[in-house]
Amino acid sequence: MKRLLVISHAPTLATVSLRDAVIAGASDPEFFDGLVEVVAIEALEATDPRAYLDADAYLFGTPVNFGYLSGALKHSFDSTYDALQGHVRRRPFSYWVHGRSDATGARRALDAITTGLELRLVAEPFERLGDVGDDDLAAAREFGATVAAHLLD
Rank of each mutant, 00 (worst) to 15 (best):
G144T: 11
R120E: 12
G25K: 02
V132D: 04
F77G: 03
E124G: 00
F126N: 02
G86M: 02
L35K: 15
D78G: 06
L13T: 14
Y52R: 03
L4D: 04
L84P: 04
D20I: 01
L119N: 00
D33F: 15
K74M: 06
E124L: 06
G67F: 07
R50P: 00
A57Y: 05
W96P: 08
D111I: 02
P49A: 10
R19I: 09
L5S: 10
T115N: 14
R107N: 15
F77C: 03
R91A: 03
F143T: 04
Y95A: 15
G86K: 05
L44P: 05
F126E: 03
I23P: 03
V16A: 12
F77Y: 11
A138R: 13
D48Q: 08
Y52E: 02
A57R: 01
Y58E: 02
L110I: 05
F60R: 02
F143C: 03
V97N: 08
A14T: 08
Y68K: 11
A72K: 00
L151M: 01
A40C: 07
D135L: 09
G71L: 00
Y68I: 03
L121A: 11
R90F: 10
W96F: 15
T104I: 07
P29D: 14
T62H: 03
G144E: 09
L69E: 02
T80E: 02
Y68P: 01
T115M: 11
